[in-house]
Amino acid sequence: MNGNDFTFVLDGENIRFEPGQTIMEAATQAGIYIPHLCYHADYRPRGSCKLCTVKINGRFGSACTMPVQPGMQIDNDTDELTAMRRRLVQMLFVEGNHYCPHCEKSGNCQLQAVAYHVGMTDSHYPHFYPLRQLDASHPDMLLDRDRCIACELCVRASLESDGKAVFGLAGRGSRTRVVVNSESGLLGDSDFSADDVAARICPTGALIPKREAYLRPIGARQYDLRDIAHNAPPDPPSPEQMP
């Protein structure tokens, strides 16, 4: 291998990459899906949901944060990893309160879509049934912490795209939760707007616009039609694009 050989091996396939790319970036560019929830191409990777865990030269690591090195041998779509990812998604489901059948986000929800992708058919673990605060104080947006997976995408988007810092994380361990940057702690008292990038970034239904819930019927939504692996990268749809 010489210094100009910018290829690595992903599930037995030779993949070209550009120097400086992470495994996730190189795989996405090559059209290969690695399950993820906290990763978004527009923001610095955080590496916390751990769904993108792959085996790198035999050792586990996060695809979204690990820079590719020439010649790396990476396992992604294996039975072992899929089984472990299924457990991770199940952990996320039992940790919060996720009511897919009557959730407005159903069909557009990445958590639900990834769960289908990794073959989750039950929750496996006992539910925690946590008591979490719902914040409906904002005229246009709803913050339902029951569905929050602490991916910090709203925190990052508000800070990096909107220049606002509306959100932050507080608590620790299983009590980690999103808090709002206002004196009352309520979303309605912050400078958050439904036009913010952060308003369209949530991979679940935790941060969701009001009065748009069923404009498109369940069954005809983004992930109802195709597996998340075959969907275009889930760009936040602009309000005009909403049906």
Binding site: G47, S48, K50, L92, F128, R172, G173, S174
Partner: peptide
């Protein structure tokens, strides 16, 4: 461990609680 997990990553945040249970 369940009390000391920082809550950053899913497996530790949830997993330490599951082991405690």
């Amino acid at each position: 461990f369940a009390g000391e997990s920082c809550g950053f990553c899913t497996p530790c945040r949830v997993g330490t609680q599951l082991l405690r249970q």
